[in-house]
Computed example of a mutant assay.
Amino acid sequence: MKELELRLLRGLPGSGKTTLAQSLGLIHIEADQFFMNEAGEYCFDGKLLGSAHQWCQSQCEYHLYHNRSVVVANTFVKHWEIDVYRKIAQKFGAKIKIDVCKGKFKSIHNVPEQVISRMKREWEE
């Protein structure tokens, strides 16, 4: 039986998180999915960002509970943003692996450059 895994991909917008997540063959979850409408269009609303991250966490728990390995691709700029996922992994006995994506691609969600610059300044290695 394969070991249960929770893989976290962190990085700035446009760093390749989504592309890598889609290639891993795991259940792929990210906050951006919360903002997709029925027609497959991305409709970001900053007021709902907290709800998007709660959704991500609950989806992660749901799949780990059902013994499915998961990859979560979010920016995770601050270390504390990862803490809840460490607890989720521990709860289900999943091995956790954290990767940092450092590619330099165009953000597929058109994140404004000033937002990316702020994230870069606040980034915790």
Rank of each mutant, 00 (worst) to 15 (best):
K2P: 13
K2F: 03
K2V: 04
K2T: 06
E3S: 12
E3Y: 04
E5V: 14
L6Y: 05
R7Y: 13
L8C: 05
L8K: 08
L9C: 07
R10D: 03
R10L: 05
G11T: 00
L12E: 02
L12Q: 00
P13E: 04
G14R: 09
S15C: 09
S15V: 08
S15L: 10
G16P: 14
K17V: 11
K17R: 13
K17G: 08
K17H: 11
K17Q: 10
T18K: 06
L20Q: 06
Q22K: 15
Q22A: 12
Q22H: 13
G25P: 10
L26M: 15
I29F: 11
E30S: 08
E30I: 02
A31R: 11
A31D: 14
A31K: 13
A31S: 15
D32F: 13
Q33A: 13
Q33G: 03
F34T: 02
F34L: 03
M36A: 02
M36S: 01
N37I: 03
N37W: 09
E38W: 06
A39E: 15
A39C: 07
E41Q: 15
E41C: 10
Y42G: 01
Y42W: 12
C43G: 00
F44E: 08
D45F: 09
L48K: 15
L49I: 12
G50Y: 05
A52S: 12
H53G: 00
Q54V: 06
Q54R: 11
Q54T: 10
C56I: 05
C56Y: 02
C56M: 04
S58V: 01
S58T: 08
Q59T: 03
C60P: 06
Y62L: 08
Y65E: 13
V70N: 04
V71W: 11
V71E: 03
V72D: 05
A73P: 09
A73F: 05
A73I: 06
A73T: 05
A73S: 15
T75I: 05
F76R: 07
V77C: 11
H79I: 01
H79G: 00
I82L: 12
I82D: 00
D83C: 02
D83L: 06
D83R: 01
V84S: 15
V84F: 09
Y85N: 03
R86N: 13
K87C: 04
I88M: 07
I88Y: 10
A89E: 01
A89L: 01
Q90D: 14
K91I: 07
F92D: 00
A94G: 08
K97N: 11
V100S: 09
G103I: 03
F105R: 10
F105V: 02
S107A: 13
S107D: 14
S107I: 11
I108K: 11
I108H: 08
H109S: 02
H109L: 00
H109T: 07
V111S: 04
V111I: 14
V111Y: 04
V111M: 04
P112M: 03
P112F: 10
E113P: 05
E113Y: 07
S117I: 05
R118T: 13
M119F: 14
M119H: 09
K120V: 03
R121K: 14
R121Y: 08
E124K: 08
E124V: 05
E124C: 05
E125N: 14
E125Y: 12
